[in-house]
């Protein structure tokens, strides 16, 4: 997949994964990289930026199972931002899908 495109989508993925529950860094990276191939290291700068911009707050939890975990929690602003991005994504992907379908139809004619 195209690098720039993937980078933009990563923001959306990270926000979506934290909508229902707080997640820690490794968990986020692991969940995303199971779905598609990424340079896993790029998620952390992204998380730092989103945190600085006030979309996330973080807290550290000592785990009985394994190393301590830094959890990322969506703030109210983050929630709103996520909703916006999801809407934008839906419009965008619907439009692209339509173009693809039309493209295939024209090919068949």
């Amino acid at each position: 997949m195209n690098v720039q495109f993937k980078k933009g989508v990563l923001t959306l993925c990270v926000l979506v994964l934290t909508l229902k529950k707080d997640r820690y860094g490794y968990e986020l990276v692991h969940t995303i990289s199971e779905k598609f191939l990424i340079a896993e290291g790029t998620i952390y700068p992204l998380l730092r930026r989103l945190t600085k911009e006030g979309y996330f707050t973080t807290y550290l939890v000592e785990s009985t199972e394994g190393p301590p975990r830094k959890y990322y929690q969506l703030t109210e602003v983050g929630q709103k931002y996520a909703d916006e991005l999801i809407e934008e994504w839906k419009e965008f992907s619907a439009a692209v899908n339509l173009l693809i379908e039309e493209g295939i139809l024209n090919e068949q004619k």
Binding site: Y26, T42, R48, P67, R69
Partner: peptide
């Protein structure tokens, strides 16, 4: 610290240091 934590979790899950570093990507780019 973020990457230290990432390594610790990866090692805990049984991955090797080389595997983890490889999938993180080029440290210079990061």
């Amino acid at each position: 610290a973020d990457y230290e934590e990432h390594f610790e979790h990866g090692l805990f899950k049984g991955r090797t240091e080389e595997e983890i570093a490889h999938s993180l990507g080029n440290p210079k780019k990061i």
